[in-house]
Design a protein around this nucleic acid. Structure first.
Ligand SMILES: NC(=O)c1ccc[n+]([C@@H]2O[C@H](COP(=O)([O-])OP(=O)(O)OC[C@H]3O[C@@H](n4cnc5c(N)ncnc54)[C@H](O)[C@@H]3O)[C@@H](O)[C@H]2O)c1
Ligand SMILES: NC(=O)c1ccc[n+]([C@@H]2O[C@H](COP(=O)([O-])OP(=O)(O)OC[C@H]3O[C@@H](n4cnc5c(N)ncnc54)[C@H](O)[C@@H]3O)[C@@H](O)[C@H]2O)c1
Lengths: 236, 236
DNA sequence: ATTATATCGTGAAATGTATCACGATATAAA
DNA sequence: TTTATATCGTGATACATTTCACGATATAAT
């Protein structure tokens, strides 16, 4: 029958109800975007953001923005909007970005190296403890601030730093096997860049960052658009 | 008010109804995954794939898989499943992967270089015509099979090869401006890796590959999981 | 002080998506 | 040949998410 991993039984009465137990997936994605937008708005000196401006930036309905905000306890003022600071603080708390998150990175190829060198994720509390590769030719090479370590060191790093998150940037063939291994070592969340949908035990969090799906989606819409144009031209 | 870009009025009577005019977004994402899975299954020598196996790989309901297949005209056989070949062919047709797609890549930094060197997108019909960067220090350097060109050559490449797709891997500050410029030059689809939601005129296709959102999502779920565990421990 | 209005907040309705329940059918087994 | 069964196909139903409609309120203008 197959129960969705991590499915939640929401006990009816729950005095300690915390808002983020239950945020719908689409809403969560938007919340993360509000956060990004609020940070940039703050940098530009805007102290407030209205549901209308947010809705225009993201191309969604303004009511939806207000519902999202209400759902996480961000309150706005009529004629003013939401406080940029409150959006940032509340969302960082809810998204879990206010605490540091330690991670290991596996696979220092093209994508892995780009991620290692990218400073942007520090704002999300991400701290990459160490980077690993199976290729001995890469071991001991430097990438950004890191020196690539051999896989046999991975186990002890995970244990020592109690790492709960792995960034997986290895070839597709190795990804599932690697994921299984990481889970056995105590990793609880995997950010996967290989173009396969990883299967993990219930309770383990996976985010499959399958770029090829994005490309397929883009091409599909492009073709559809062009078809319509031709179609229109023929018809009228 | 705000009308969603590219919104479609589906004329009631339409003899030339083509399946891919109307595929729901979640369904489209799954279809692209079926395609990936079918390709790997084919390489492993499996001639058939059942809705059950697909549903287990992706963690979705098996009925959903059958509905998806039916929606694009892929028909299966009782007790056998769907033909791997039919899945691949039909989905490549529908996703538009059977035709070549020319693209330019803007911004040859960490992500841009990784994309340039990655061979995997060729299977999706993607052909990167040329890669550009604004940094003169990078111009003329090689990345994989490419030599980085200066931005001033971009216009003529787009015109000459009638490029309709741009891969945008520039810093967030430059992304919207760059997108506007590309649209003015005739680009119809943008695959954006900068962590902002690009705004484009109706009729232009954008896919925002906002990796930071993925990270935020992952961290959120990890925290939620851990909270639940603690919560459970305290309660029982 | 009064009025106007931009904006928030929210229940109700509409829409979109997934699941259930069950009949049909092709293959394998008896 | 007959029976059993794994799997497909699909209408009906349930669930999730968005949009609509409208009242409430804080600020700015008069
Ligand atoms: N580069 C891209 O643009 C891109 C795009 C989409 C998807 N991906 C996917 O991302 C993943 C990485 O891509 P890439 O371009 O960086 O590939 P890559 O070949 O450049 O790097 C992969 C790295 O993983 C290492 N590796 C292989 N097996 C390993 C193992 N078992 N344990 C540890 N390390 C191992 C290799 O030595 C190599 O350094 C692949 O699954 C690829 O399909 C990449
Ligand atoms: N590297 C990552 O892991 C990562 C992760 C998430 C998001 N991103 C985003 O992807 C984008 C690229 O990231 P990166 O790590 O490759 O950055 P990077 O700084 O390594 O590369 C950016 C490249 O763009 C070029 N550039 C700058 N302005 C330009 C312009 N106007 N026209 C053309 N080229 C220009 C720069 O010269 C540089 O080569 C950024 O928006 C970043 O936020 C990167």
């Amino acid at each position: 029958m197959m129960r969705k991993a991590g499915a939640k039984r929401v006990s009816g009465e729950d005095r300690t109800r915390i808002p983020w137990s239950n945020i719908p997936k689409p809403s969560l994605e938007r919340l993360a975007q509000y956060h990004q937008i609020a940070i940039r708005a703050g940098e530009d000196g805007n102290e407030n953001l209205s549901s209308v401006s947010l809705s225009e930036i993201l191309g969604v309905d303004e009511t939806l923005v207000r519902k999202d905000m209400a759902s996480v306890g961000i309150v706005g003022k009529p004629r003013v909007g939401y406080s940029t600071g409150q959006i940032i603080n509340k969302l960082e708390e809810i998204l879990g970005l206010s605490q540091h998150t330690d991670a290991v990175l596996i696979g220092c190829g093209g994508i892995g190296s780009a991620l290692l060198r990218y400073p942007g994720f520090r704002k999300y509390g991400l701290r990459i403890s160490a980077a690993f590769d199976a290729d001995f030719a890469k071991v001991n090479q430097r990438v950004g601030d890191y020196v690539i370590l051999p896989m046999e060191k991975c186990r002890s790093v995970i244990n020592t730093f109690r790492v709960k998150v792995a960034i997986l940037a290895v070839p597709a063939d190795a990804a599932q096997e690697m994921a299984d291994w990481l889970v056995r070592r105590g990793v609880q969340a995997i950010w996967n860049f290989a173009p396969i949908h990883l299967r993990v035990p219930a309770g383990i969090v996976v985010r499959n960052e399958n770029l090829a799906l994005g490309l397929a989606d883009l091409i599909h819409h492009l073709r559809r658009n062009n078809m319509e144009k031709e179609d229109g031209a023929r018809t009228r």
